[in-house]
Design a binder for these strands. Structure first.
Lengths: 237, 237
DNA sequence: TGGCGGTCTCTTGCATGCCACAGACACTAG
DNA sequence: CTAGTGTCTGTGGCATGCAAGAGACCGCCA
């Protein structure tokens, strides 16, 4: 039910295609606006068009690509407005997750978060941005997981996928001092969670998301990810 | 991009099938757990299996049905836990929508909400529950629309679809006095929105959702929608 | 009678071929 | 040179056929 997908044993062909394509898109391996022809993908994967079509259909429903009938299929290029909206949702969901986690008390995720922060401190200390980016992703993921609401988690994953988050985090971390500040904010949130202060945890978490968004947009060129993206590939004029 | 779908001119076959099936599911015309065979649907709609398959694929991604490979496709049967989670999300999103709407000030949606409440008052006065159920749905929809965040709206619609909300509202309205109380709560929320008191609007809206959930569960039999739903049709052991 | 094995049917997964439409390009007329 | 128009190619939409797995059902054997 969750688009995020984790472990899967009966790996059907379409599942493979979905995971592979989703991975490429959210990692930024293929840029927004890039056309994805069914036939080309089918040949690349060595399968027929059918499973590729079904994979594309699902990715469209997840909001990762756009299928224009009789024209072509393209990697979605979120407009500036959509990015704003996505961050608004991110703030909302992560804030709620922090509150819910605080209410749950001492659950396993807390310890994993503490371990995450210890590693994050080290990564920041040696200025290892790549590793820190991973840890940031994990921190937010753990927080949402710890909220113990599968629906929340599913919607959250969908959002992050649409943002192609991994691609973006690095950008925001290139702002000088952002990594250190981000790490401090994480510590603050976790303290409040452990203190079971749900209200404050939510508030601080939301502030943290706003800060990260600010850092991100500051490091982004005027227009979205790529100027060559067609006129309005992803709605909103 | 939004699963909710509204007007569509270039009606492809699969789009037709999607809308029709979605309508049947969320209205409760077909019960959770009901098997949906591709071939049967194809014959019913007078088309081939292909567009039906694609429609089913999308509905699965939306969380409305479950496709068990090589076994069959079934209308999803939300577990009790999932219903709880969905309402938690509903509370979250509608609360945020109330806040956002309050911040926007005098927008067209406000007037539509006022008109909605006038009609609601009348419906309640003459104990027309069916009409009132429609108006409730519209009220919540307008609120979310008025938040002017398309992502929020899309996720909200997905949630409501998973809940098969229209089918549920009537149940909650069968609780004695619930309609009147609900109407009052709507008035309260709208007042706060118009007063641009976002904090309070969010708080009251969230309380309203909790109340409606309470009324709903009180009118629901012990187990979910239908006991004949297979063991764990919709995950969660 | 109860448990077990095989078969048989129904389901979806996948491959393939044809079709209609969008859009680009070149050619032609003014 | 420009605007209009026709064609032509590439795309996804849809129909169809075959294959493989799951599960029910029936018969057999102890």
């Amino acid at each position: 039910m969750a688009p995020g997908a984790r472990g899967s044993s009966p790996t059907s062909i379409q599942a493979t295609v979905i995971e592979e394509l989703r991975g490429r898109i959210i990692s930024g391996a293929i840029e927004p606006g890039t056309p994805l022809a069914e036939l080309a993908l089918a040949e690349e994967f060595g399968v027929s068009r059918t499973p590729v079509r079904e994979a594309l259909k699902q990715l469209q429903t997840e909001g990762l690509i756009e299928i224009r009938p009789r024209v072509g299929t393209f990697v979605a290029a979120p407009s500036r407005r959509e990015i704003t909206e996505l961050f608004e949702m991110k703030e909302l969901l992560e804030g709620a997750a922090a509150r819910l986690l605080a209410q749950r008390g001492r659950v396993p995720e807390i310890e994993r978060l503490e371990r995450n922060l210890r590693e994050s401190d080290e990564a920041v200390a040696r200025d290892d941005r790549e590793r820190y980016a991973e840890l940031v992703h994990e921190f937010h993921g753990l927080l949402v997981q710890g909220a113990d609401n599968h629906k929340l988690e599913a919607h959250y994953r969908t959002l992050m996928n649409q943002l192609a988050y991994p691609r973006l985090v690095m950008t925001s971390l290139n702002q000088p001092g952002r990594a250190l500040q981000s790490d401090r904010e994480h510590h603050h949130v976790l303290e409040l969670v452990i203190a079971k202060d749900g209200d404050s945890a939510e508030r601080v978490m939301r502030e943290h998301v706003r800060e990260s968004r600010r850092a991100l947009l500051a490091g982004l060129p005027l227009t979205g990810p790529s100027a060559r993206a067609r006129n309005g590939v992803a709605s909103v004029p």
